[in-house]
Amino acid sequence: MSFFKPDHEIHRRRYSRNLWVGLALGGFVLLSFALTVEKVTQGDPMKAIRGEGHAVAPEDAALQAKPEGAGN
């Protein structure tokens, strides 16, 4: 029996089934990943970086309000 080539109908069917299960699982992983990326990036992703759309904590606001170099 060769290692890669199934030599019997049963082996051929088992191989095809396992191949499809593998492909289905791989596809599921990719789909879950893509779905996660889409869910977490919904809306404008740059808003978070620009600080828009977020409530700024009072202590952070105070820090931002301080003039440059103050407190050094």
């Binding site: 109908e9 069917r13 095809s16 089934r17």
Partner: peptide, 12 residues
């Protein structure tokens, strides 16, 4: 020859 054997992917 077994009539009931391993089902293939197409059977599912």
């Amino acid at each position: 020859e077994s009539p009931v054997s391993e089902p293939g992917a197409s059977d599912f």
